[in-house]
């Protein structure tokens, strides 16, 4: 595995997950982000889902699609 292609994912999504968790934690501990309400629960799923969607997207374009087809173009 070419780690020069893996480190970017680890770095971006590692630091990204810290920033994301920090905001959610601040919201919950302040009482402003109230997970007992449906509206705020939906927002939580969107925040986490968006993060995972983007992570999946870059993973597909790192580990799979660059090698299809195997014969590279010009």
């Amino acid at each position: 595995m070419d780690m020069a292609r893996v480190w970017p994912i680890v770095c971006q999504y590692g630091i990204g997950s810290i920033l994301l968790a920090l905001g959610i934690w601040c919201g919950i501990t302040s009482g402003y982000f109230d997970l007992t309400t449906r509206r705020d629960r939906n927002l939580l799923w969107i925040l986490v889902g968006g993060f995972l969607f983007l992570l999946a997207l870059v993973s597909v374009f790192t580990f799979w699609l660059p090698y299809i087809p195997k014969e590279a173009g010009a």
Binding site: Y13, L19, G23, C26, G27, Y32
Partner: peptide, 10 residues
């Protein structure tokens, strides 16, 4: 995207 939680919740 990962700035979103800090933006929206703080």
């Amino acid at each position: 995207w990962y700035w979103m939680s800090i933006l929206l919740l703080v």
